[in-house]
Design a protein around this nucleic acid. Sequence first.
DNA 1: CATTTATATCGTCATATAGCGATAAAGCAA
DNA 2: TTGCTTTATCGCTATATGACGATATAAATG
Lengths: 119, 119
Amino acid sequence: MPPKKSTSAPLHLSDTALELIASRFRALSEPMRLRLLSCLMPGERTVGQLVEASGSGQANVSKHLAVLREAGMIGTRKEGPSTFCFIADPIVNELCDMMCCRLREEMEGKARALTSRAG
Amino acid sequence: MPPKKSTSAPLHLSDTALELIASRFRALSEPMRLRLLSCLMPGERTVGQLVEASGSGQANVSKHLAVLREAGMIGTRKEGPSTFCFIADPIVNELCDMMCCRLREEMEGKARALTSRAG
DNA sequence: CATTTATATCGTCATATAGCGATAAAGCAA
DNA sequence: TTGCTTTATCGCTATATGACGATATAAATG
């Protein structure tokens, strides 16, 4: 292994690896990007359709799509004047499903706590 | 590669839900927080131990731990003057493992592409 | 070539936050 | 009480980035 400099951490993950992992999670850390991914889950959509569905501006949607594309989470293909976007990494569905399930569990737990015996 | 059919449910998520999911991913979007979680994976650690292991300042570590605690990913317990931290949500391990595996696959793919015949 | 459509990029502003030093708060020892 | 340890919080600066408007690029159309 190259003389990879580690701060002093007894970790198996290098600084570079942590940066890469963090950047992937960062791509999923904005509601607008999650909304775009949600719109893409049933199948591919054009940028224009995403603009309409998301209710945001075209420039903003384009920039968020660029972030998702750089993170490797979506792919694009051009067809005539339009650009179709599609989820390119199945990890997106898994990650979001996991997070949704976990949140639902927590919400239901809190709801029970509130409805059962609200002090 | 053509777009892949999703097996996910046609989830239409509210703004509140998207915000919640995004905030969870945002907690994982910083290398320092991932490092702290990595330090906690073998077992609980005090804040001081995490400060030493992470190589960052005490104030910074404390703030990052607060973010992780608010996201429900770690828990804390006080023992004397020390605060012990531990991973409170098993989803952390799953998410990080998934992301690591995916990144390793991509890296190896790119490495092969570079070593095979770099024009 | 000019125009329309579809998308990307740029400039700017406002906000969020990472990192740092100083300090406060809480517990323990003498 | 004082002093030490441990952790949390405050104030600050620098940077990153989301949202928006304007503009640029590219393809299709007339």
